[in-house]
Design a protein around this nucleic acid. Sequence first.
DNA 1: TCCAGATGTTTTAAGTCTAAAATGTTTAGG
DNA 2: CCTAAACATTTTAGACTTAAAACATCTGGA
Lengths: 174, 174
Amino acid sequence: MRLNAPSDSVMTLDSETKAVELPEDHADELRLWLRLLTCTTLIEGEIRSRLRERFDVTLPRFDLMAQLDKAPDGMTLSDVSKRMMVSNGNVTGLVERLVESGHLDRRTSDTDRRVQVIRLTKLGRAEFRKMAAEHETWIADIFGDLTEKDVRELMRLLAKTKGSAQKAVQRRQD
Amino acid sequence: MRLNAPSDSVMTLDSETKAVELPEDHADELRLWLRLLTCTTLIEGEIRSRLRERFDVTLPRFDLMAQLDKAPDGMTLSDVSKRMMVSNGNVTGLVERLVESGHLDRRTSDTDRRVQVIRLTKLGRAEFRKMAAEHETWIADIFGDLTEKDVRELMRLLAKTKGSAQKAVQRRQD
DNA sequence: TCCAGATGTTTTAAGTCTAAAATGTTTAGG
DNA sequence: CCTAAACATTTTAGACTTAAAACATCTGGA
């Protein structure tokens, strides 16, 4: 995809003298990326503020508990790390503090002694459910100006964006 | 906006007995938020990896230099903090390290001794320009599957999202 | 002039995060 | 059975991040 493509005459002139390495214009994609980043940063900050104000909890802790709430049988640290897209060492520390505060239960797998399985304690689940209910209303508030159609369209375009980005990651890793 | 609105009969029944506090369903907005977050995290991680591999620089440093590149006359720390949407203390530390490495110049304002004005040094600008050129091609690669129309549409919807979120922030702060 | 509030920055304490090295465990091939 | 490679987790060192308190300076009235 190319916006603001150079005119044909310029193309031709250039092609005659050197390998085709024109500095293409990707300003629109760059602006899109900055806007995406701005939106996420803005919303993330707002959620962070409200979680702190209302429940005195950090966003990473909330996110980790959200993952575990969806997995009644628990998850391994690796699973959590992949799902949250953060490093392994990061998860170790987060879990440590949440076990300490009584929100998480951690045990070594019966079948593989390398593996740590973590799950929400009764306290952890109860507290998370309370937070999650309110969290959902915050999200509705934050996205309140979007119509149903906007939401559908954004979902579709972000799915496409995610796929595109994943392919780029894959290409680099080859 | 409301998806899966409760039926009128339920509404009526409930309204008779207590204040209208039905647990509305905002699952779609929640999914949208998670997808937005996933996209940003994925792309941010990819950019971070490439910056480290290729230039041995961190993303926050790159971002700070990007702000300064657009301001030849320099910026105050407060300006930077607002633009980057990070805390003041954060900027102090970042700037410290970039001054140390010779990429930034920092001086107290002539007219207001509270204010620190920072700008890119010659070295800083040269290095940033090199990184920025490559960075732009990475972004083009990452968003490569999107058509021109997709980009336009995403820009529009994210602008609307940003506006909506800003209003929510405003409401909370009142 | 004086000074109370506003503004700009730094400091502090604690938490989050990463990449890379180290540790412990399992698995597969010979 | 042995062992090299793969895998899961933790540790390490350093950077980034925040909120809140502390500090410095400026500004606009009384």
